[in-house]
Computed example of a mutant assay.
Amino acid sequence: MGDSDGVLAMRERIVAVADRLFYAQGIKSVGVDAIAAELGISKKTFYRHFPSKDDLVIAYLQGRFRPLPAASTKPPAEQILANLEWIARSLNGAREFRGCAFLNVLAEIGSEDSKARELAIAYKESRRLWYRGLLSQLDVDDPDTLATQLALLVDGAYAAVLIHQNSAMMRPAIAAARTLLKAAGVSISASEATLAAIDQTPQA
């Protein structure tokens, strides 16, 4: 393994450990000392790869910045519901679920002006805009507001799953999404939306 490969491997190890500790305990609670100790490396080695803890927090968030589903020829409403079905399946049996990592970081950082805050906001907004882009293809009066409502349903479902430690709490959010879409005049097919869910990629 060359020097560059070794540097990359160590960087990936640091991010992997930070991802686990940050998500489980919070970014404020986990210090550089704890991460270095977990890896069995010195702080000097840590800082060689990440000049500051803030740089590591950014790498942590970037690692969780999952791609959105690719463009599809499926009906927009079907894609939206399939996305929600995917989220429900991804949470099934997730015993270590601690909520949305991006919302957690925003809660810890508060109004602090930082790159991490910008990334977390950009991630959440990218999901809302994905919904809006699909809704804009339909004959609905206000796709922007409807997209916001759908995004709120997802975040609310994450909170409910965390509170009750039960992934089934995602199901009422999907039912509410169907109600919102129908109220906006969108025709949907329950069977087609469920089948389309297998094509979805991670969202949160």
Rank of each mutant, 00 (worst) to 15 (best):
E108P: 02
S114C: 13
L152G: 10
P202E: 07
A193E: 04
A88Q: 03
L152K: 07
A59K: 02
G133C: 03
T201N: 13
S136W: 13
K182M: 12
S189E: 11
R66V: 09
L106E: 05
D19R: 12
K74S: 13
E112K: 10
L181R: 00
L162M: 11
I80W: 12
Y131Q: 01
F65I: 01
V30P: 00
I27M: 13
V7E: 13
V32I: 15
A71R: 08
I109V: 11
G110M: 12
A88N: 09
G156Y: 04
A70P: 03
Q149P: 00
L106V: 03
R66Y: 15
V161H: 08
L81H: 11
P75R: 02
L8C: 05
L162Q: 12
V15Y: 00
G2C: 06
L180Q: 06
G26S: 05
K53N: 10
E192G: 00
N83K: 05
A204R: 02
P67R: 13
S52F: 01
P202L: 08
Q165L: 04
A82R: 02
R128P: 08
R127C: 05
F50A: 05
D55W: 05
Y131A: 04
S72I: 08
F22L: 09
D144C: 02
L153A: 09
A197F: 04
Q25H: 10
G2Q: 12
P67S: 04
